[in-house]
């Protein structure tokens, strides 16, 4: 049985060196991509947003129970988005080419800018809904905005990592 995926549909008794080298390069790039930037489910978006919210809550109310609850929530959320993210990798110990390292740095930069945008969005939302202490409505709206933006960001980076990091080069 033949597979149609990733250029391996070539019949096994017909040797096309160019196609075989393409199969080899693409499989190497995909394995490296999986190790550097594993594709994750979108539920990591709301969890990451929850983590950011928890850390912000702790920074506002460090000594109060609400702040400590926020910190606990943040730690749990970040555990799932960080450690689980790393644990889900299906390849380990990648040997990326120079081009792939460059692409990876660009994607990390994109993710960092996106995270910064979420934090700025939070600040603007809380400012709009009044005062330095966020009300329940501010928290809910901010969390919803963060979740949507983060989920969209994960969706974009997943697509980029598949098509960009996962291509040979």
């Amino acid at each position: 049985m033949e597979s149609e995926r990733n250029g391996i549909s070539q019949p096994e008794d017909d040797v096309n060196p160019q196609a075989l080298l393409g199969v080899l390069e693409n499989s190497q790039a995909a394995a490296v991509s999986e190790s550097l930037w594993p594709v994750n489910p979108l539920w990591h978006g709301p969890l990451l947003a929850l983590g950011i919210w928890g850390i912000l809550a702790f920074s506002w109310e460090q000594s109060s129970p609400a702040g400590l609850i926020g910190l606990a929530v943040a730690l749990v959320a970040l555990y799932f988005t960080g450690f689980q993210y790393m644990r889900r990798r299906k390849t380990k110990g990648a040997r990326p080419s120079g081009t792939m390292v460059g692409k990876y740095v660009v994607m990390l930069g994109f993710a960092s800018v996106m995270t910064l945008a979420i934090i700025i969005g939070w600040g603007q939302t809380l400012y709009r809904f009044g005062g330095s202490t966020p009300g329940p409505l501010g928290i809910i709206i901010g969390l919803a905005i963060s979740s949507i933006v983060t989920t969209m960001g994960i969706s974009i980076t997943n697509t980029l990592s598949r098509q960009w990091l996962g291509s040979a080069g």
């Binding site: 391996i8 080899l24 499989s27 790039a29 390849t91 040997r95």
Partner: peptide
């Protein structure tokens, strides 16, 4: 020579281990 095996070897060669 079979492309499927070549792809498996390619993925394994680019990393320490592949699941």
């Amino acid at each position: 020579t079979p492309p499927k095996r070549l792809a498996c070897m390619g993925a394994a060669s680019a990393t320490d281990k592949v699941e």
